[in-house]
Amino acid sequence: MTAFTKKKSLLFWLFLAPVIGWLGLLIIIPHIDLLIMSLKAENDMGDLVWSTANYMEFFREPIYWVTFVRTALYSVITTVVTLMISFPIAFYIAKVASNKLRGAYVILLLLPFWVSELVRVYGWMILLRESGVLNFFLLKLGIITTPIEMLYNDATMIMGLVYSSMLFMVVPLISVMESLDDSLVEASFDLGGGVISTTWNIIIPHAKPGITSGCIVVFMLSLGNYLTPNLMGGKNSLWFTEQIYNQFIASFNWNQGAAFGFLLLLLSSLIIWFGLKVTKQTLGKVVA
């Protein structure tokens, strides 16, 4: 009996070891290192000492927190737009499309993700630039007389972000909608509900866990995106990740960069926590 339980617990630890090792080596230890780094700053003598100066700098210097607020706000907008576009698409794929087509649609959605993000973004740039494909056709068709620069503005950047994060919204939505009993929708119509009231009262409450997990993923991806804002947003779109990059690479101030990294982690967690509170959900439910 005891031998058996001993063996069992040994087996348990044996299986758990790689997970713990992975977590420890690749996540926890580097983060502790970064945390220590973020809490050190140079004093006037040029020596590294313990200090919260790096964190204070974020709040003291408007460029930093304004950039963060901007990044967070745009990520929220991206999330909302992604949700609004993905919701009907997911509903169509999960509920309307025939079984045969369903797989094809999902593959179509997956297709852009077989190339790297860089290639995807350059694809958009080729389409939208002043000498790009879209301008070429608009000129040919006589709709415009001088080419329009469609890149390097916030709308284009958000479109790019939406494009690169749509899959991560559509997939959880499809899976949650597949579990929706068709007769619930029919019952709603039968009882006098229209498209809007059925969506609002039946489909959205049912899809809530999928919506929340999709939103969290898309929000985090947008917040942590570097390429798309940088390349498509152009000159006016400083993204917070770029600031972290600049601290590490251009200013050689790793301590400041680490502090920014932790602030990003902290503040984004806070935003998600707040979002869950507002929609009266718990993370456990969403993940389960």
């Binding site: 040029g46 210097e61 460029i63 930093y64 304004v66 950039t67 000159k235 006016n236 400083l238 770029e242 600031q243 600049n246 601290q247 251009a250 200013s251 050689f252 101030n253």
Partner: peptide, 19 residues
Amino acid sequence: PAHIEAIEGKLLDKIKAAN
């Protein structure tokens, strides 16, 4: 020399962030 890059880094951020 040292410190020059930090000065420049912050200004570059400021330029990029400006609207």
